[in-house]
Structure formats: structure tokens, C-alpha cells
Design a protein around this nucleic acid. Sequence first.
RNA 1: GGUCGGAUGGCCGAGCGGCUAGGCACAGGUCUGCAAAACCUCUUACACCGGUUCGAAUCCGGUUCCGACCUCCA
Length: 491
Amino acid sequence: MAQIKLYNTLSRTIEPFNSLTPGRVGMYVCGPTVYGPPHLGHVRGPIVFDVFRRLLMDQGFQVRFVRNITDVGHLVGDADEGEDKLQKQARLEQIEPMEVAQTYTDSYNWVMDAMNVMRPSIEPKASGHIIEQIEMIESIIHAGLAYESNGSVYFDVTAYEKEHNYGKLSGRVLDELIAGAGNASRELEGQSEKKSAHDFALWKRASPEHIMQWSSPWGKGFPGWHIECSAMSAKYLGSEFDIHGGGMDLLFPHHECEIAQSTAAHKHEPARYWMHHNMITINGQKMAKSLNNGIKVSELFEGNHPLLTRGFGPNTLRFFVLQAHYRSTLDFSQEALEASEKGLKRLLEAFKKIDGVVPESESTFNTKEIVQNIENALIDDLNTPIAIAQLFELAKYINMASDKKAKLTLSDIDEIRSAVARYFGGIMGLNAQDRSDDNGAMNEVMDILIQLRSEAKQEKNYALSDAIRNRLKDKGIELMDSKEGTTWKIN
RNA sequence: GGUCGGAUGGCCGAGCGGCUAGGCACAGGUCUGCAAAACCUCUUACACCGGUUCGAAUCCGGUUCCGACCUCCA
């Protein structure tokens, strides 16, 4: 077992990773708030943490991987006021909030499956852990670090700050938080209930029309956003566990609040390592629902978006994500996706040729060194781009040997074959026999057929044009004419 | 306004004191009936200005841009 190194946001340095219990790792990752279809931004974290999980497993750890589903507590709009996100969506769609949650949990998991992201060991829902959250709030109150106000409960940041450091994860200083706020809106409604503007809600009193509400010692209400992760991680991983992951945008306030809550309730911090991945950007800006620049995953798969002329498959998307280091921003564009797709194809083509390589008595290359480089890169703070570069090196060896321009011994061939299985397929979770990403070729084929048919139509050869349409329809592909041209879909 | 981070060749992206990744694109070549694929070549790009050093894309100081967070976000 090699020594894994990991950047810990808490220390802002790369540290050797050692688990609390030898051979076992507990990992908690913040999952989605299920009030809308998954977009590209939802995709990076799960892939990154999936690869890290697989790395840990590869290194012999037994991993309990918990990723939550937030189906209550996330509010629309500013600060602690506003409508629950799920409730709002339910109102818009005229269905039950839990129906909204179920719909988007399903679509999220469908995307995860498509991208070959392993399902979590446990996938707890916030709404299923109201009791645990209430209990945790009670212990925070008991510790004197939270107070009730008008049926709501708030975390007392000022009191907490006396013995602890609120801001240790995000590097924030409380005084600056108060002074800062270039946004005046946080001084608006609901603030009067709080002792201090930066106190955050643990429990919110529900107004009568609020559908999602539960009984509590403080009356009818619902939990605040941050408390769910603290309560659920403690329940399934213990009050102290190894790794907590999430996006950098959750660093503050979400993760900072988690540390404060857990420390208040358990007298020690929850996680030893905090792992944060960076954002996917588009034209240099974060992709976010609120910025209205998001691309839905389904739009990416289908190519159904103004920025895309065609679709890209899940294996390509996964490869695209892994070609950048997880702590760097990754800029999205069709051009970048195309580059990834072609690179991936090159790798796949080469790997297919392994079995055809005739072994020689000596090798031109130092295969062992390259393979070792892959592992070294992965255990060094999950440097997937370096690992992929080394895979390309291996692909080159295969191609050259296949062309009789270089030699590989039998043991080197075996070495490459097992490296592909272990690193490319196993840890990075990429599909080596990929058939799903043929959309590009399919699109081109369809373009040709559509073109031929349109020529036939212009020559008034309707027998031929109809034959094309009908025979495609028999195969489940439907052509649709409009004045903008002909589009197609697979039924 | 505060805090933190970033600026790398046409594009995407590693590297973070000397050995100058990788992919894609472009161009030339080998191979080939023609293509395609594959292979080879495409011989140093690191925002700007100073400094430290035998040596800096990498360290320090300054400048200019850009971004994230400070409000829900993956």
C-alpha cells in the first residue's frame, strides 16, 4: 500500500493521508439539492470523489462512502428567509415536494450511472433524518451555542467564537464578515430574530402554508440547510471521520457551519481531511443555475444546446473532467470536449490492439516506469492529468509495437494490459470498450442520409425520399421536417 | 469593500528552482491503388516590471487583468 497524499483545505497543504482506523475510510460528500435537472456543474464532484474512492479501494481500503440527498431546508433567495427550493418547484409543477425530490433524485442517479460513478454506500435524505437533526440541535443548545427565537433556532456564532475559530476552514475572520457584505440584502427581513447577522439557522419556524414541516421542541418547522450534513455524517460515519468532500463553493458558509455545529455538539471537529474540487467554468465564469449559464447533462448528451452542435457521451465527459486536476477550474467549450473525445478515442483504439501485438525477446521501452508513474500521479493528490498523459505514452508503445516499429516483451504486454484494466478502467472508471459515445459518428451518418434525402426531394424523387424516411423509421429513427431543415431523433 | 486563488504555445491543460508533460488543431513526411488509421517531425509557451540565484514559468516585491467566496449553488 503506497502512501496517498492529499491536499487538505484545513491546512492548505498537501498532507499524507492516514485513516483513523487502519484499512478503513469514512468519506462524506455533499450531494445535490434535488429541485432541478442535473447540470454540468453537478458532474465534476461526483466523478472526482468517485475516482478518489476507487483509488482508496485499489490501495486496499474498505471505504464507506456517504453522499446525501438534500430534499429539505434549502431556501430560495437571500439569507434565511425565502421559500424552500423544493416547495417552490413543487408549486410550479403542481406536485408534491417529495415528488419533486424523487423526480430529480432519479435523474441525478441516472446521470451518475451513465458516467459510471459508483453508487454511494449510503445515500441518506435530509427529510429522513429530522429526528437526528433535532437531537443534534438540542445538544448544541445544551452546549450553550444556540438559542431559540420566535420558534426558530439559531447558531450563536459569537458565543462559539469565544472558544473556537469560526472561519478556520474558509480563512475568514468574523469581524470582516460583519463589516464586509457588499450586499445589503442580508440585513433585510428575519434578521431581527437573530442576535447577530452571521448567526445561521439550525431550525426554522414554518408558516402555516409551508408544506414541508415537522414537529419539534420549538414548534412546527423545518431544519436549516447546514445541520443535515452534520447530523447524517455523524450518524453513519461517527462524530469523527476521515474525509469530507464537496465543491469549493460550499466552503463558506456550508462547510464552515458544519464544523461549527459538529464541534459544538461533539466537542471535536467532524472531519480530518477536507477535500474541495474546483468549478467548471464557461467563458471563464462559474456555471451556476443562478447565473443562467448552466448546461443540463441531458443537453450535453443530446447536443441540444446553443453552445453545442452535437452531443457528447458520458465516457467522454468523464474523461474531459479527469484531464484537469480537480483543484483547477475547468473551462468548458465544445472545442475542449472534441479534443477530449478524440484523445479518448485514440486511447481506446490503441488498447484494442494490445492482444494483436507479437511479443519480442526484448523491449524498446521501459514500460514498468510508465506504469509506476501512473500510480505515483494518482496517489499524489489525485493527479489524473499526469496519469492520463502516461496512459497516452502506453498507447504510443502499443501502436508502435503493433506497427513493428518497436518491440515489447510478453511481460511488458501483460504489464500494459493490467495497467489499463487497473488504472484506466478500475480507478479512473473509464469504459475501455466504449460503444456509447458513438453519437459523433451517428450524427455524421445521419447528416449524410438527410442530405441524400433532401437531394432526392429536390429531384422530386419522392419514392426514394420516403423510402429513406420509412426505412429509418423502421429502425426507430424518426426524421422531422421543418422549415429550418430536417432533424432526427431515436425513439 | 474584505478574503482567497489564477494568468502557460491556436485551443484544453500538467509542471511549481536546472532534465523544458499530455491531448486537440495546423503543417510536412513515412506507409498506402486512393483514403483512413498508425508512426515520425512540427527543434522552449509560461501576463508585465523589478529583484534573489551560477540558473526562475517555478522563489520575493510591485503592476495589470481575470475568477471564486462573503446570499442559494457541485
